[in-house]
Amino acid sequence: MTIASSSSFVLSQRHLLGIEGLSREDIVGLLDLGEEFVALNRQVEKKRTSLRGRTQVNLFFEVSTRTQASFELAGKRLGADVMNMSASSSSMRKGETLIDTAITLNAMHPDILVVRHQSSGAVALLASKLDCSVINAGDGAHEHPTQALLDALTIRRNKGRIEGLLVAICGDILHSRVARSNIILLNQMGARVRVIAPSTLLPAGIERFGVEVARDMREGLADADIVMMLRLQRERMNGSYVPSVSEYFHYWGLDEKKLSYAKPDAMVMHPGPMNRGVEIDSIVADGVQSLIREQVEMGVAIRMAVLEALSRKLPNA
């Protein structure tokens, strides 16, 4: 059995390089489409044919488990031929430049390229050299648009809306592409956004992003509907940005006590992978207020929605 897509939604652009530049209609369209795929993914027969004959290449310069798996599954369920390339096995290891990799790939006529790269702006650079559609699966500390979209879908399904909610994003804002994409999306959708972090993990000029800024969890979590925790990389834990894991967890780690400062029905999110006992306590991560597992499910659906929407703009679609 196949559910025919009722939506005739078409994305306004050829690539998905970031949330920046998406209209409210684009976002709502993708979320609605994602909703359909949630239903599809819960069926026994999960296969669609809208990408049949299309080639999707997942080019990951930075290691990833869930994002890469999620994109692979999404492409396969839509009928595309999916090829995974990772930095460790690619010619990049042999010193090939990003542009040369792009030219080489282009010659193979992929239809959709999904790229993750450690440098901000690298995905846009690739897109400028390629004929296919490019999806940003995370570039440096810049953007991770599909993460923000899946977060939005998760929020909308649980709260019934996004507009008017207070979303607290906590942790390493400075290095986080997830935070940047979410801030842009949530602002676009009319949510109130508050970031909470030690000052060392806040980028300069953050107050001009349309967010409230708090350094303290008690103050920052007050009245929050959604508590979105961010991962703190190991190399940033021991004295460079924060003094230690124990101090970070003491002041900024989400435990039951700190969660109690938020609204009683507040929901907890985390883009994964989690550092239990660093930014989040296991009791909270696995608790009734946690949406963390649901986020992963939404991830496949929203990536299918993005692939589907972009495929409708491909030549000969």
């Binding site: 021991n238 004295g239 460079s240 003094p243 230690s244 124990s246 101090e247 003491h250 002041y251």
Partner: peptide
Amino acid sequence: ITKGLEGSEMTEMGL
């Protein structure tokens, strides 16, 4: 200010 007075990693100032 820094662990072991080594000038490289800051201490647990909050605690």
